[in-house]
């Protein structure tokens, strides 16, 4: 009798903990005004090693704050289309610009590398979005781009699209370790 009560208490506790974990995954920080609207305006000149400047980035946290956040990743997915990233990179498969879904990265696929790529632009076509996209949205884009190759917790990966599906859903892609090539 006692053990049954203990077991049901444990079950309840597990349920509460699971629900709590779910809240983390879905948290939507709409109103964090200063952080959400900051814009990286300081011009940064590239140093010689492409993608090798991690640690000197203005907002280098090592990871996007939205990396494990399902809402942030899906917002990134929406912005990826609305800011016309799809115009060059297609839905990850690449076109005029390099593919983002594969394991080859010219400038690295760490969050700070991707942030710098978006803010500063890169040679041969990638425009600089400095001052045109608030930092919080850039971090959402970074989280989504990292998730394209399957590098995000399964629970946070988007499984649906607003448009007709063009490939394997993000949450069903095999994750392969990224390679920084340093050249196209």
């Amino acid at each position: 009798m006692m053990s049954r009560r203990v077991a049901s208490c444990a079950l309840l506790l597990c349920g509460v903990l699971l629900a709590g974990a779910g809240c983390e995954r879905e948290s939507r920080p709409f109103q964090q005004l200063p952080a959400a609207s900051a814009r990286t305006e300081r011009p940064l000149l590239s140093q010689n090693t492409p993608g090798g400047r991690v640690g000197e980035s203005p907002i280098d946290t090592g990871a996007s704050p939205f990396q494990e956040n399902a809402w942030g990743i899906s917002e990134g997915k929406r912005l990826f289309e609305q800011y016309n990233c799809v115009g060059c990179h297609a839905h990850g498969g690449g076109g005029m610009g390099p593919a983002l879904i594969d394991d080859r990265w010219i400038y690295g696929n760490r969050a700070a590398n991707l942030f710098d790529t978006i803010v500063q632009g890169r040679p041969n076509g990638m425009p600089a979005f400095r001052n045109k996209i608030p930092d919080s949205q850039i971090w959402q884009l970074v989280a989504y781009i990292q998730s394209m190759g399957g590098h995000a917790p399964l629970a946070a990966l988007p499984g649906r699209s607003d448009h007709m599906r063009v490939g394997t859903p993000e949450n069903a892609r095999p994750a392969t370790p990224a390679v920084q090539t340093g050249h196209p």
């Binding site: 939507r28 709409f30 109103q31 005004l33 200063p34 959400a36 609207s37 900051a38 814009r39 608030p134 919080s136 949205q137």
Partner: peptide
């Protein structure tokens, strides 16, 4: 300045 306080979750980011 802060559309997220008026209509939280809308697509317009706040502007400082």
């Amino acid at each position: 300045a802060d559309s997220q306080s008026v209509k939280p979750g809308n697509r317009m980011p706040p502007n400082v």
